[in-house]
Computed example of a mutant assay.
Amino acid sequence: MRRIGLLGGMSWHSSIEYYTKINTAVAQRLGGHHSAQILLDSTDFADIRDLQVAEDWAGAGASLAATGQRLQAGGAEAVAIATNLMHKCAPALEAAVDVPVIHIVDSIAAVARERGYSTLAVLGTRLTMLDGFYTERLEAQGFRTHVPDEQTCNEVDQIIFDELTQGIFTDASRARHVEIMDGLKARGADAVALSCTEIGLLVPPETAPLPAIDSVDAHVATIVEWMMAAV
């Protein structure tokens, strides 16, 4: 089994999901007392959030690069950023390490392709939806994408950072996300990518009003396949 290095803590609520789901999948595949070989470097998210708010993406990239190098030095044979937004800094991480970086957008694309979806709604932080680093990568792989209007993007972003990344999940925010998904479905999306690692905790895919791809589940599936390739 290969050893994965996770860049975690962004937020720790979703890092728990990564750790649990990777180990569960490995145990199901191998049985007995088997568990996953994981190196987890969990950051203080307040530091990363300060860089995001300041739009210091060079600094954020340097932070991820340093984390990736620590993981590689510790024996990680590949690394994965356990969050969506910080994939904006994936190029800095890729340049800093000599091991593969398992990209979350590629994982979502693989699931969408397998299920036959062609038009994906993307629901996540403001920059995940509007900056282009995320939707353009999906479009380069043959998918059409829809995102909410800018005001709604700001609203979702506020819910994510004021509530979800702090472990707060309310019925009001759940209902609002479902309403937004309904609107994206009406615009022609045949599936929605839950492109914030905490949205799946708020609106589990089975409760969404259209087919949903949880970014954590998609990413974990790719990570586990890579880990098990050496078994």
Rank of each mutant, 00 (worst) to 15 (best):
A78H: 05
G74A: 15
M86P: 02
P91T: 09
G5F: 12
Q37P: 00
A109T: 08
S11P: 03
V101A: 13
A65C: 10
W12A: 09
G61P: 00
I104A: 13
R70A: 10
G8S: 06
A109P: 01
T20A: 13
H103C: 08
A58W: 03
T83M: 14
D98G: 15
A112W: 02
P100A: 09
L93F: 05
N84R: 03
A60H: 00
T20L: 15
T83F: 09
E17A: 14
G68V: 05
T83P: 02
Y19C: 13
N84F: 07
P91Y: 11
T67L: 14
W12H: 08
G32K: 07
V26Y: 09
S11A: 12
D47H: 10
W12C: 03
G31E: 07
G74Y: 02
S107K: 11
A62P: 01
A27N: 11
L39D: 11
H34I: 00
L40N: 03
A66N: 01
G31Q: 09
G31S: 06
L85A: 14
D106R: 12
L7T: 08
L30M: 15
T20Q: 14
D41F: 03
T67N: 13
A54D: 09
E55D: 11
S11V: 06
A65F: 09
G9I: 02
V97Q: 15
S42A: 12
G59F: 06
K21R: 15
L64D: 10
A58I: 10
Q69F: 06
L40R: 06
A78T: 04
I4M: 14
H34M: 11
I108T: 12
L71R: 03
G9F: 05
A76W: 02
L39I: 11
V99S: 11
T67V: 04
E77F: 00
D44A: 04
A60W: 01
S35T: 14
L40E: 06
V111D: 14
L7R: 11
L93T: 06
A76M: 05
C89I: 04
E17Y: 02
I38S: 05
K21W: 06
Q72N: 08
